[in-house]
């Protein structure tokens, strides 16, 4: 009973003091920390170059962590390759090139259950219920789909493994307002089904509206942290990042 309680309290993801970057000697993240609890929807916002996408990549093992630790359900997974994190229940949707363009929709979904191919039929039925547009396009090459459809397919692929944590890197980037709404609605649905979500997002206002908690990054460091709705109305966040337009709304 006590063990179960501890499990419930252990964050799904806890990244502490992360230092990472692409070029030798140039750190993009400079001691960034983040935490996602079970079933939580957490947003990460910040100006261009703040390190939002870099944080997602570092947490997911696509970028080497130079200092700091990444824990998954309390277990240290720092430096583990991405495919191992997928095995441990993490799904990731990159910002760009988020589908296998030369593969069909069905093959993309099959790649999602690469580690458990027998689950394909069951999981495909589940994700097609969430994204009905995919069912009619199984034979279509992913590269020929529109940006919005590709985003749906990308999220569906990541959900095929039934992840307990989903990392979304700017899911609304490049989409029309209507498609953005659709994406945010789906994110809320996914989270409502019990999947913890860490969403890095450029559309800060929409992101904070649906997030339980939010982090504001600035120059690779945590600038502000708080509940999504609180950050939305925080004078400092408005002044430094959201802009006066947000106050007017």
């Amino acid at each position: 009973m006590r063990a179960n309680k501890r499990e419930r309290n252990t964050p799904v993801l806890a990244a502490e003091g992360i230092v990472a970057g692409y070029l030798p000697g140039v750190d993009v993240l400079r001691g960034c920390s983040i935490e996602v609890g079970p079933g939580e929807l957490v947003g990460v916002i910040g100006p261009n170059g703040a390190g939002k996408s870099t944080l997602a990549k570092a947490v997911f093992g696509l970028l080497r962590v130079r200092a700091g630790t990444v824990r998954l359900n309390g277990e240290d997974v720092t430096g583990r390759p991405a495919h191992e994190l997928v095995r441990r229940g993490v799904g990731y949707v990159p910002q760009l090139q988020n589908v296998f363009a030369s593969l069909t929709v069905e093959e993309n979904l099959r790649m999602g259950v690469y580690l458990r191919p027998r689950d394909y039929a069951r999981r495909a039925a589940a994700v097609e219920e969430l994204f009905p547009v995919l069912a009619a396009r199984r034979r279509q090459k992913a590269g020929s789909m529109s940006g919005g459809e590709r985003q749906m397919l990308a999220m569906a692929r990541a959900l095929m493994t039934e992840p307990q944590l989903l990392l979304l890197d700017e899911p609304s980037a490049g989409l029309s307002p209507l498609h953005q709404d659709h994406v945010f609605d789906r994110v809320r649905e996914i989270n409502g089904a019990g999947v913890a979500v860490l969403m890095v997002e450029q559309n800060a206002r929409r992101c904070l509206q649906i997030c339980h908690r939010g982090y504001v990054l600035d120059q690779g460091r945590n600038a502000y942290t708080g509940r999504g709705t609180d950050l939305l109305h925080d004078e400092k966040v408005i002044a430094c990042y959201l802009g006066t337009l947000a106050r007017a709304r």
Binding site: F60, L62, P81, A82, H83, V86, R87, Y92, P94, Q97, N98, V99, F100, A101, S102, L103, E107, R110, M111, G112, Y114, L115, R157, A158, T161
Partner: peptide, 19 residues
Amino acid sequence: TAVRAVSANRDLAEASGID
């Protein structure tokens, strides 16, 4: 299929659990 997936998008293949 994993070979074709890595050819199409290396990082995404890794993100799909492919070594």
